[in-house]
Simulated assay, not measured.
Amino acid sequence: MKVQQSFLQKAEFFSVYIETINGKYNAAWSSHSYYEFMLDFSGEFCVSLGETTYSLTKGDVLVIKPNQPHRVEPKGPEEFKLISIVMSEKFSDYVQYRDINWNPLVLFEKNLLMPVLHFHGKHLERLEQMMYMLVAESENKQNFQDVFIADISELIVLEIGRYCGSIYPEIVRNAVYN
């Protein structure tokens, strides 16, 4: 078993992590007080949320609510890579500060048909492009790396919002700040 965790950025409002896992992996249960979008960048893996296990494939996004027990498990012996965008309790302040017209945290507060979002079409293409950019930037030690990572992560969160807006237009429309 090989687990490589690449810490990308930790900030007051959100953090970004990339994990690469090879071989057998016995994950411990975890739970935290913040919101998380977990994205499947490559390979396949499962995530148990309480009693239910969800299978993720490339481009899927798992929505994890605060204090929700979960653990990541390999689906097979192949390597997989995941990206986690972890939003603090102050994330709402961040979206208002950045003049983002809606708060994606509303997705966690509604009883939507989730927790896995299966992206497809143009949304999947854009999401994959942004994930590739994020991983490439994490491996590229250049000037302004933290800013690029934060901006790409923000774009990913906004793309998740756009996709949810196409599935749940009324909820997203009603969550727009005035």
Rank of each mutant, 00 (worst) to 15 (best):
Y54H: 15
I64D: 04
R98L: 06
N67K: 10
S48D: 08
R71S: 03
M87R: 08
R126Q: 13
I85V: 08
E89C: 04
E51G: 01
G23L: 02
D99G: 11
G50T: 03
E78Y: 00
F45Q: 12
V47W: 00
Y34W: 10
G59P: 04
V106A: 04
W29Q: 14
W29I: 15
Y25K: 12
K24C: 00
S33V: 02
L56P: 05
M114E: 14
F45R: 13
P69M: 05
V61T: 11
S33D: 15
P77I: 07
S33A: 11
Y97W: 09
E44G: 03
V61H: 02
F91D: 09
H123M: 06
M114Q: 13
Q68K: 10
G43H: 05
K58Q: 15
S92A: 12
E78A: 07
K75G: 01
V116N: 09
M38P: 00
K90G: 00
S84E: 14
F91A: 09
S55A: 11
S88K: 12
E44T: 07
V116K: 10
L82T: 11
Y97T: 09
G59I: 06
L107M: 14
F119Q: 09
S88W: 03
C46T: 10
L127H: 06
G50Q: 12
P74C: 02
T52G: 02
L39D: 06
K110G: 01
S92T: 14
Y35V: 06
K75Y: 01
V116C: 03
E51R: 15
E89D: 15
L56W: 06
S33I: 06
V86L: 14
V72Y: 05
N111H: 13
E51L: 13
R71H: 12
K110D: 08
V106W: 07
S31D: 10
M38I: 08
L112K: 08
H32C: 05
L56K: 15
E36L: 07
R98D: 04
